[in-house]
Simulated scan of single mutants.
Amino acid sequence: MNNTTDSDNNWAELVSGLIAGWEWLERLLAALWNGLGWPHSALIMFCVLICLFKDEIRNVIPRIRKFGTDGFEMESPPQAQQATNEGELQEPPVGDFPHVFGVVFEAVTREIEGKDMAEAKQFLVRDSAGWRVLCFFENIYSNIFGGQIQLLQLLNQRGLAGMPTAEAEREWSAYKERFTPALDDWEMDGFLAFLIGKELIIKSEDRIAITFTGHEFLIWMTKYGRSTNRPW
């Protein structure tokens, strides 16, 4: 019985405190508005709101994609990335783009005209492999985070020696703090899983290093003008 009474008293005190705080804020805003006039009062209120919600605003600004008279568009919070290569070498979607496929098909047919079977096979295999490499890197780039690109660049500078896991953990903590609260639920292993699954890095018990694939992915980014400025 006493516990119930104490609980009711605590709730009553909490509600009274909230009401008193709200009334104080109302009186403060009214005093500012009446005493300083709307331009100065609005500026002060704006500064107060910026101070109160600075962390939320800091998290929103990097996600803004476009700003205009109709408002602004924002990037969605980071989602789990596909860490495996499964399904990337499927048959081409011929039915989705029949016209362009027909044009390219005729161009390839003309290129192998006059070649014997062995030459045509070598040409087609090399051509297919080359395009699949580009598609592979495009797929990675469409899903990779900005922080993962920065990690690849840092590992690329270290060369074969790589980076101690302890240092990688410190880099991860700083990166996660930068994008809090969006990355609060992420862990470093999940962040690295995409890079490991795409064979861009290798991870042992005490070190992380870039692979030849990771090095060539950075070369591809530079050659084809891909920006390192990616979300997260």
Rank of each mutant, 00 (worst) to 15 (best):
M74F: 03
M74R: 13
M74G: 06
E75S: 06
E75M: 01
P77D: 09
P77V: 08
Q79G: 09
A80V: 11
Q81A: 08
Q81K: 13
Q81W: 04
A83K: 04
A83S: 14
N85D: 14
N85V: 09
G87M: 02
G87S: 04
E88Q: 09
E91L: 14
E91G: 05
P92Q: 02
P93N: 07
V94R: 12
D96R: 14
D96F: 12
D96V: 11
F97R: 07
F97L: 03
H99D: 14
H99G: 08
H99E: 15
H99K: 13
V100A: 10
V100E: 13
V100N: 10
G102S: 12
V104K: 10
F105C: 12
F105A: 08
F105E: 13
V108N: 02
T109M: 02
T109N: 06
R110S: 06
E111G: 04
E111P: 03
E111Q: 15
E111R: 15
E111W: 02
I112H: 03
I112C: 05
I112Y: 04
I112V: 10
E113M: 07
G114Y: 04
K115T: 08
D116C: 07
M117A: 11
M117C: 09
A118Y: 13
A118H: 15
E119W: 04
E119A: 13
A120M: 01
A120L: 00
K121F: 09
K121E: 13
F123E: 01
F123I: 01
L124P: 01
V125W: 02
R126L: 04
D127K: 13
D127P: 00
S128H: 10
A129Y: 05
G130H: 11
R132H: 12
V133W: 12
V133L: 12
C135V: 07
C135E: 14
C135M: 11
C135D: 14
F136S: 14
F136I: 00
F137M: 11
E138D: 15
